[in-house]
Design a protein around this nucleic acid. Structure first.
Lengths: 118, 118
DNA sequence: CTACACCCTCGAGTGCACTCCAGGGTCAAG
DNA sequence: CTTGACCCTGGAGTGCACTCGAGGGTGTAG
């Protein structure tokens, strides 16, 4: 797959993909003419990056953890470990949001919602 | 409360508070010497802004909805309505994160986690 | 009166994550 | 051999959310 197809299938711009490559987030092999070539897995990696970003990680943080996913020849156990870490981050995030939700919900029942419930 | 105290109690910098004021997110009355004066409620408004930011809203988006919270003399029912909207946004966010969590969790059980489960 | 911790404005600078542009190469179709 | 849809690089520009600095005023304590 070349960059235009990956762009349209991922919903990102060609510029963004080239930017991600410069930041070390994704990798592409090159054809003889210099064109980038991406494997199907690139789509998963991009989805993963999107998830991590939504969780509040910067691209720099993501790229520190990502090489194991982008490289080939890494054992599945290592990938599983990374996914487990990501799941734990999600759980933490969800817990925090639910706490905020409950806080707001409690305020709803107060006469004056703006006063800190402490 | 003047700006230094609000800064240390909210964990934000004085510069950030002045920036938020310029963006129309918070309001301060002025003393005769020109110093800003904040009511206790400012702390709740700042917590609210932080929540909204974590939900992915930009400051511009937040400021469009916030005046009702920052102004005085607004009926509690209006405030309650805003809180309900915020709670709905939180619910949506939580649902999305849980879906991602489940997706990653499913991948954990696959032989090759990088292949899209589609 | 001096020191020191506050406060003020205005404008410039920073880091992040893109986004755009100029100038140019590649390649299949007609 | 031209047209049009692709692709390349390098560098500048954008918008957001701060962050800092210069230059200066305020107010209490010794």
């Amino acid at each position: 797959m070349q960059i235009g197809e990956l762009a349209s299938r991922s919903g990102l711009s060609r510029d963004t993909l080239r930017y991600y490559e410069k930041q070390g987030l994704i990798r592409a092999t090159r054809r003889l003419n210099g064109y980038r070539h991406y494997p199907e897995e690139a789509l998963f990696v991009l989805a993963y990056i999107g998830t991590a970003q939504r969780l509040g990680f910067t691209l720099a943080e993501i790229s520190r953890e990502l090489p194991a996913l982008a490289d080939e020849g890494i054992p599945a156990t290592r990938i599983a470990e990374i996914l487990r870490i990501k799941i734990a981050a999600l759980d933490e995030r969800i817990t925090g949001l639910m706490a905020l939700r409950d806080d707001l919900s409690t305020r709803l029942d107060l006469a004056c919602p703006l006063v800190a419930a402490s």
